[in-house]
Design a protein around this nucleic acid. Structure first.
Lengths: 181, 181
DNA sequence: CGTTGCTGTGCAACTAGTTGCATATGGATG
DNA sequence: CATCCATATGCAACTAGTTGCACAGCAACG
């Protein structure tokens, strides 16, 4: 598993509570590793038991108290060790591709419905691309003065942007192909 | 889940045994939906119980007997219905991106090891790209004369090619960034 | 003052997927 | 003749991830 390690990276970048982590997984980290808050709390508990992270109770005035987590030495060592291990081959699950090949086995109306779905999917990813591009403009203005962490976050974001651009081009190809059937 | 549906598409394209399906999932279908033979046999059994597929016993001379599956009417209806449903947002799990951001928290030797890993990963995907491109040349010579199924398979393959090209470009960016740290 | 909404934490049950193992036929290699 | 490889099917145990639900504080709105 790598959720532990994604959490370690996120907490090393900045300590935070389970709730804050969950919100980060909806945004930045979640672009390449999704997780729900339930899963995060469960894994966080295990990591605390294993001594990878330590919690600090923080009482808050206008909000419920929270437990802010930081990475302990053994957690950092675990991360460094994991970084050295070979990258596991990804488990690809691209539902849309299955549906496109499945379109050969439905009727005209079914294909029309799929075209609508692809259009909606394309619009969502176009929005996502703009979000990324705006985030890049906002957070990575001056490439020369970036520190190590920022450079690495930036190159990962550039990957997201490249992916979304490639996806939009391909979706146009898909739409043209479906419409021409 | 969509493994059922991926199997339905594969069996509609051509009936086959669990073993044959497993081999297809290592190649064509597995480019966008991975599954092991154990999982396939289990799901296939459930699909048979549900009446989505029917098996035919085939005795073979030089090989163990096999059970060849075809899609039944109710399976085809289930697929058509699923095709109409909205595409679920993908659960992204991109381990390499986590490792790249994690590289901020290791030492020089750790980053060197990561660079080697990225190089290996890049070489693997370059090989994969050549496999796709060769497959395209072999199977999709004459775009005008393609039937519906081939056109759809081809557009999905073009997606795989576009993805691999984008990935290689990005990995070069990653390598340059890591080396310049 | 009731509802909605954000912050904050978590359990329980379920589903999907992985890993390790088992078994059998028969061809090819050394 | 033993071993390895490809074909062929499957169980059992485990791990990871999803879904549904619950509870609590406090602020803002009407």
């Amino acid at each position: 598993m790598a959720l532990e390690h994604a959490i370690l990276v996120s907490l090393l970048e900045r300590p935070g509570s389970g709730y804050e982590l969950a919100r980060r997984f909806e945004r930045s980290i979640g672009r390449f590793w999704t997780a729900t808050h339930q899963q995060i709390y469960r894994v966080l508990k295990r990591m605390e038991v294993d001594g990878w992270v330590v919690a600090e109770e923080i009482g808050q005035d206008r909000r419920p108290d929270k437990r802010s987590f930081s990475v302990a030495d053994s957690g950092r060592r675990a991360l460094v060790e994991w970084l050295r291990a070979p990258v596991q081959p990804e488990a690809v699950r691209h539902e849309l591709a299955v549906k496109i090949r499945g379109a050969a086995f439905t009727d005209e109306a079914g294909r029309a419905a799929l075209i609508s779905e692809v259009e909606r999917y394309r619009a969502d990813h176009e929005t996502l691309l703009y979000t990324y591009v705006n985030g890049e403009k906002r957070d990575f203005l001056d490439r020369e003065s970036e520190d190590v962490g920022q450079r690495l976050q930036h190159v990962v974001l550039r990957g997201g942007i490249a992916y979304e651009r490639m996806l939009l081009d391909w979706l146009d190809d898909v739409l043209a192909t479906l419409r021409a059937l």
